[in-house]
């Protein structure tokens, strides 16, 4: 247990420190890298509480895909770092406000959980014993039965968002020649090459 405790404090400390660095780093690319470190250590914390599926999904989805796209965009930004710092004081009240709201919400959830455990137990699915049911299967049991409509709705919302993004950025430029793969593949040698018998001294 000592080892688990030590690992927890190590990961938790790194996660919090990295999260602080995300906000305070001067260079946006460093911010993204610290964000990745935060995700990664959080995944480690998930593993420690036995939620290995969540941990892996966090790494696959957030670190492997979302943060790569962040990085892709941030790397291409041409930013003046001094200019960037000027807005800091202006945005700070909003940031602090959002932070306080999140903190209060978290405290409320945790407070209910510790003070009245019976209320928390009533509304949730019972968590099956890890020895009997792996948490991957346990998640599947409820997501695809009890919460299927919510799950599908979430998927639909993402699909609509994706279509929206495509519609907004798609523009048809007239007069641009694009590669037509089917036409290329349908092209035969007879259509393209013609052999001519050329008489000496005459040309074609």
């Amino acid at each position: 247990m000592i080892l688990q405790g030590l690992t927890f404090y190590l990961f938790a400390a790194i996660a919090v420190a990295a999260a602080a660095m995300v906000v305070s780093a001067r260079n946006p690319v460093h911010s993204v890298l610290f964000l990745i470190l935060t995700f990664f250590t959080t995944a480690g914390l998930f593993v420690l509480i036995g939620a290995e599926f969540l941990a892996m999904i966090l790494v696959v989805v957030y670190v492997g895909a979302v943060a790569v796209l962040f990085m892709f965009v941030v790397m291409m930004l041409d930013i003046n770092f001094v200019e960037l710092r000027e807005g800091f004081l202006q945005y700070m009240p909003v940031g602090v406000l959002v932070g306080i709201i999140l903190l209060v919400e978290l405290l409320m959830v945790l407070g209910t959980a510790t003070m009245t455990p019976e209320v928390m137990a009533a509304g949730t699915e019972p968590i099956p014993d890890l020895a009997q049911r792996q948490n991957t299967a346990a998640l599947g049991d409820v997501i695809y039965t009890k919460y299927i409509y919510l799950f599908q709705t979430a998927g639909m919302i993402l699909l609509i968002a994706m279509i929206g993004a495509i519609v907004l950025t798609l523009r048809q430029r007239p007069g641009v020649r694009k590669q037509d793969i089917t036409r290329q593949l349908a092209r035969r040698r007879e259509d393209a090459v013609e052999l001519k018998k050329v008489q000496p001294g005459q040309g074609i």
């Binding site: 599926f53 892996m56 999904i57 696959v60 670190v63 492997g64």
Partner: peptide, 11 residues
């Protein structure tokens, strides 16, 4: 979750 782990590492 071995397969997911491999997928995560390769990503």
């Amino acid at each position: 979750v071995g397969i997911l782990y491999l997928f995560a590492i390769s990503s």
